[in-house]
Simulated scan of single mutants.
Amino acid sequence: MLLIFDCDGVLVDSEPLACQVDADVLTNLGLPYTAEDIARQFVGKSMKDMIARIEADHACTLPGDFAERINRTLFARFETDLKPIAGVRDAILALPHPRCVASSSVPERIALSLRVTGLADLFENVFSATQVARGKPAPDLFLHAASQMGVSPEGCLVVEDSPAGVQAALAAHMRVIGFVGGGHCGPEHAETLRQAGAPVVIDRMTELSATVQALA
C-alpha cells in the first residue's frame, strides 16, 4: 500500500500563515478578504485555480506578479514561523509502507516547507499540482503520484485535510483519511470532510498508525 500525504495542513501547519498572507495581499489590492474567507474558499486548491476563481468572482485581472508577491511574503514567514504538525514525524516513521507527498502547492513551497520543519528526509518522492492539468478536486495529481510510484489507485491511501483533497482522492478511487489537526481547522471541519466523503477523520497524528492499519 502506498501512503500519499498532502503537505499543507497534514505535514506542516502552514494554512494559518498562508491564509493570512493571501488575505493581506488581496486586501492591499482592493479586494478585501479575511484569512477565514481564504480558508473557506481556497484551502487545498492550487494557486492557478485560486487566481481564476478570484478573477471570475470580481470580474478583474490580478497583477501578473500576484503569485510571486504571495510566495515572496509567505516563504519569508515560513523560514521563521512554520512548524510541523504535532507528532507527524513519529507517526510516519511508525508506518512501514512506501510514501510520497502530493500537494497543490508549487514545488518550491513544498521543498521549503519540508526543509524548515525537518521532514525533508522522510520523502524521496514529492509531486505538485503544477505537474498535472487539473488541480484538486480533480483526481489528476493523485493519479499522477500513483503512476509515478508504480502503484494502482486501489493500492493507495491518501491523508488529506481539505474537502477538495478528499474529493480528489475519492475521484481517483483511492481510500482516504481526513485530518483535522491543523491550526486552520475549526470545530466544524471534521463534519465538512465527512460531507466531502471522508469515511474516517482523525484529529491527532498519534491516531494515524492504527487508522492506516484498520484501512489496509
Rank of each mutant, 00 (worst) to 15 (best):
E154F: 11
R115G: 02
V180P: 01
E207C: 11
G30M: 05
H173P: 01
E207N: 12
K48R: 15
A129W: 00
L93M: 14
L208C: 07
T192P: 04
D22S: 12
G181S: 12
R109A: 02
A216F: 08
M174N: 01
C156A: 15
P137M: 07
D161E: 12
Y33K: 06
A76M: 10
A214F: 04
K136V: 02
P96G: 10
C100P: 01
R115H: 08
T34P: 08
I54T: 07
G181T: 06
L11M: 06
F75N: 09
A216I: 10
Q167A: 13
I38F: 11
V158Y: 05
Q20A: 13
D121L: 04
T61I: 11
P163N: 10
Q41I: 09
D57A: 15
C60I: 14
A39G: 14
S113N: 07
C185N: 15
A171F: 02
E36P: 07
L170Q: 03
Q41A: 11
K83D: 10
V25S: 04
A59V: 13
L122T: 04
A120K: 09
S128D: 03
I70T: 05
L62C: 12
L3Q: 01
Q213Y: 07
A39S: 13
L2D: 05
E108F: 07
D37F: 02
Q20T: 10
M50A: 13
V176Y: 00
Q213C: 12
M47Q: 12
A171N: 03
S46N: 03
G118R: 08
A214V: 04
A91Y: 08
I177N: 00
A216G: 11
E68S: 14
R53C: 11
L141M: 07
A59W: 06
G118Q: 07
G186D: 14
A216R: 11
S113E: 02
R69G: 08
P139G: 02
A23L: 04
D22W: 12
H58N: 13
A129R: 00
V25L: 09
T34Y: 09
H189M: 02
R72I: 11
V88R: 05
F75K: 11
D24I: 03
V166N: 00
G44A: 05
S147Q: 15
A120T: 05
L193G: 02
T61P: 08
D90L: 12
G181P: 06
P84T: 09
V126E: 10
Q167F: 04
P153L: 11
M149T: 09
A138K: 05
L141Y: 01
S46R: 00
G155H: 15
V180G: 05
A23D: 04
N28C: 10
P187W: 06
G30P: 05
A133L: 15
G9K: 00
D90R: 14
A111I: 01
P137I: 03
T192F: 03
L122D: 04
F75L: 14
I110E: 00
T206R: 10
I110R: 00
A210N: 11
N28E: 14
G155L: 12
E207W: 06
S46C: 03
L31N: 04
A171G: 06
L208S: 03
K45R: 15
V116P: 02
A52P: 03
A198E: 03
I70F: 08
V106S: 08
A56M: 13
